[in-house]
Design a binder for these strands. Structure first.
Lengths: 219, 219
DNA sequence: ATATTTTGTTAGATCAGTCTAACAAAATTG
DNA sequence: CAATTTTGTTAGACTGATCTAACAAAATAT
């Protein structure tokens, strides 16, 4: 069984992996906030457990087994976030830190029960998909708001970044998942986007913001 | 901040402490299921943190600070158990293992929210008191069923042992907290007790069982 | 294509938490 | 009270997860 530390490395590996399932050791070190030698020794440990393939001076390759372990931890994380929001009244900006701890709990029934109580949700409070109990993730492809054009009407579906600061920024503008946005115009100079929604007749979103918003085209 | 391991030692210390707050190192070793040298080195660590007083060859003495840390972990454990039973539909025999993990989560709001959702319960699913947010425990003194006499009518209020096996034994006899028991007779030879309750016109409880049941005298 | 920078490795140390073996003090018992 | 048992201590080792220092390979840039 993976230790909490190993689970965290696998999660990072999972998130950093490209199409070839490769991750550079230094990216992992940055992500995990540890030194390169620490990662070097940890990847050797992870390899012994069959969760990745390691060859000197090569990027590591996460194995299907490693991906499954990671996906199941991510499942627990996202179920927890959804439970905290839907059943315990937390705001979407408050749940990451708590879920980061709860995700390491070994108690299948606990998470099954959460899942059941929520009616088997498929996305978490930030629009990210919840892997199923087998560790499979249903990838949904959304549009980036920054790629949309004036005149389009879209619905806010997910975020590519869920930092507390960004979530609080969105809270301050009453932007939440499901909010329908009309794109009024797009500034050619800085790519900022003018939108209207709810009782906000016009709000400007910088590219820095719009590129973090994933949307679904309406009609 | 106490590590998970330290929290577990402090919990055991708290539970083993006598009126003088003293605990023998070997009792602690038995309770924690580790060797004596391990405890020996750990008590030195705990002393450095001010959670106990250690002198060679003397029982350790838990300090008020140590007791508070322990009580706050116990608070999280018991709130979690109650939440699992009352809000998530678990049986009282299923919650200990999960709470043993959840108790180490550092997220005050998470436990405050549980507390609030349950209306600030004062006891856990096994009748044990829940320490308050300052780590104070309101001790309630119950009678031991094994000390009761024929003719008395009592209400099951708490357990002195909450092992899964014992809880399953009680489940099998429909015995739960709040059940009113009439003591029909007591066998002088083996101290077994004959009781009636609900639709059970007569059940015998061995001393091994009755001494683990805490009751409140009715009238 | 050489020099420089970035990335990765090795060696060796540290800390937390654990162990066994050997021994010493305290408590118990005959 | 002496012998035995129980309890506690010390020394030394191990594992997991981390670090720094020194170095080596690979990638990049002049």
């Amino acid at each position: 069984m993976a230790s909490q530390t190993e689970e965290n490395y696998l999660k990072s590996l999972f998130n950093l992996a490209n199409e070839k399932n490769e991750v550079n050791i230094s990216e992992l070190a940055t992500q995990m906030q540890v030194s390169l030698p620490t990662v070097n020794s940890m990847v050797k440990t992870l390899q012994k457990n069959g969760w990745l393939i390691y060859e000197k001076y090569k990027p590591v390759i996460i194995t299907p087994e490693g991906k499954k372990v990671a996906a199941l931890v991510i499942r627990k994380h996202r179920l927890t976030e959804m439970f905290l929001v839907n059943k315990m009244g937390f705001g979407w900006e408050e749940v990451h830190e708590i879920a980061e701890q709860v995700e390491h709990i070994h108690a299948p029934k606990f998470f099954e029960r959460m899942d059941e109580m929520m009616g088997f949700p498929t996305i978490d409070p930030h629009g990210s998909p919840i892997p199923d109990a087998q560790g499979r993730i249903q990838e949904i492809k959304y549009l980036n708001l920054s790629d949309c054009k004036a005149g389009q009407v879209v619905k806010l579906a997910a975020l590519t970044n869920s930092s507390t600061e960004f979530l609080e920024f969105l809270n301050g503008r009453n932007l939440r998942l499901g909010t329908e946005l009309s794109i009024l115009s797009k500034e050619a100079y800085d790519q900022s986007i003018l939108i209207s929604y709810l009782n906000h007749s016009s709000e400007t979103l910088s590219e820095k913001v719009s590129e973090k918003l994933l949307v679904k085209l309406l009609d």
